[in-house]
Amino acid sequence: MFKILVLQALSNLSDDQAGSVIQVRLSLMRLPGLSLSEKVPDAKPNRLLKKALAHRLWS
């Protein structure tokens, strides 16, 4: 999941866009360690991870 956040930051993608881009581009599935048979996480886990990281950093 953290690698997906890095991809989002580098590519300036929203949570929803990140999932779509990873599904379309097979080369990007390798970055977070997903195989072709695995489902790409939707936007909700990305949002929750961002919220948790922000809470830890700023608390």
Rank of each mutant, 00 (worst) to 15 (best):
S35N: 14
V40C: 06
S37H: 11
L57K: 08
H55I: 08
E38P: 04
D42W: 04
A52D: 12
S27D: 13
Q17H: 08
K44T: 09
K50S: 09
A18G: 01
L57T: 06
D42H: 13
R25F: 15
V40R: 02
L36Q: 15
R47Q: 10
R30K: 13
M29C: 10
R56M: 09
W58H: 13
K51L: 05
L48F: 07
E38V: 06
P32Y: 02
P41T: 05
S59K: 13
H55E: 14
L49S: 00
S35H: 07
H55T: 09
R56Y: 11
L28E: 01
L28F: 12
V21E: 13
H55G: 12
S20V: 14
A18V: 00
A52T: 02
R25K: 12
P41W: 04
A52M: 07
L34I: 06
V21R: 02
G19S: 11
G33P: 03
A54K: 11
K51F: 06
A18C: 09
L53H: 06
V24C: 09
L26P: 07
L26R: 09
A54W: 05
L28I: 04
A54C: 08
A18Y: 00
R25P: 00
W58P: 01
L31Y: 07
L31I: 15
W58E: 15
R56T: 03
S37W: 07
K50P: 01
H55N: 05
L34N: 03
K44V: 10
L48G: 04
L26F: 09
A43W: 01
L53D: 02
